[in-house]
Computed example of a mutant assay.
Amino acid sequence: MSAAPCEVWFYHLERSSLEQVLPELLEKTLGRGWKALVRGGDPRRLEALDQHLWTYREDSFLPHGLANEPMAERQPVLLSAEDGNPNAGDALFLIDGAEPGDLSGVSRCILLFDGRDEQALSLARGRWSVFKKAGHPVSYWRQGAERGWEKQA
C-alpha cells in the first residue's frame, strides 16, 4: 500500500505579511504534534525570520532553529534554504518562491505567497497546475474579510 500523496495548500496573503501569518500557522502545525520545515530562498530572510520567531509575541516563542546550526535535525520548526528534510518535518512551508523539491514523507506542503506581487501570483498559479497534474490534492485559502482563512478551492 503506498502512502497518500502530500496535500498542497496555497495561502494567498492579501492583508497580512508573512511575518504576521507564519507564526500562527506554525503554532497550529506544532499543535497537531507535527514538525515543520520552512524553506526559503534567501538565507538573510531566514535569519530575520529566526529572530522574529523568538520575539513575535511577548508571552511566548516558537521553538525553532536554522538548518546550519547544531542539532538542526532535532528542531520542531526548522528554517532552511536547502533541499531535503533534515528535521523530518511533516509540514513543509514554502516562502519567497522556494522550490518544493521531493515531497515524499511530507504530509502537507503549504505555499505562502503575496497576493500583491504579480510575480508571486504567477508562480503560484503555475505551481497549482504542476501539483494538480502530479496528483496532489490542492486547496486554495484566502484571507477572510475579518480574520482567519477561507477555503476557496
Rank of each mutant, 00 (worst) to 15 (best):
E47F: 00
Q51V: 12
T29M: 04
P23D: 06
K28V: 00
G40L: 02
E19P: 10
T55C: 06
L37W: 05
G40I: 03
V21L: 05
G41K: 11
L46P: 07
A36G: 12
P23Q: 08
E27L: 02
T29Q: 07
R15L: 07
L25Y: 01
G41E: 09
V38Y: 04
W54F: 12
E47K: 15
G33W: 05
L37G: 08
K28H: 03
L49P: 07
W54Y: 01
E19Y: 12
K35S: 15
Q51L: 15
H52F: 10
G40Y: 04
W34L: 09
L25V: 01
R45A: 15
D42I: 01
E24R: 09
L25C: 03
A36K: 00
L18S: 02
D42L: 05
W34F: 14
L25D: 00
E24P: 02
L26G: 08
Y56R: 07
E27P: 00
D50H: 13
K28G: 05
D42E: 13
T55I: 13
R39G: 01
E14P: 00
Y56C: 03
L46Q: 06
R32L: 14
E47Q: 12
G31K: 00
W34Q: 08
R15D: 08
L25P: 01
E14N: 15
G31F: 10
L22E: 01
E47V: 12
S16C: 08
P43W: 13
P23H: 04
R45H: 14
E47W: 11
K35V: 09
R44Y: 03
A48F: 08
S17F: 05
D42C: 09
Q20A: 09
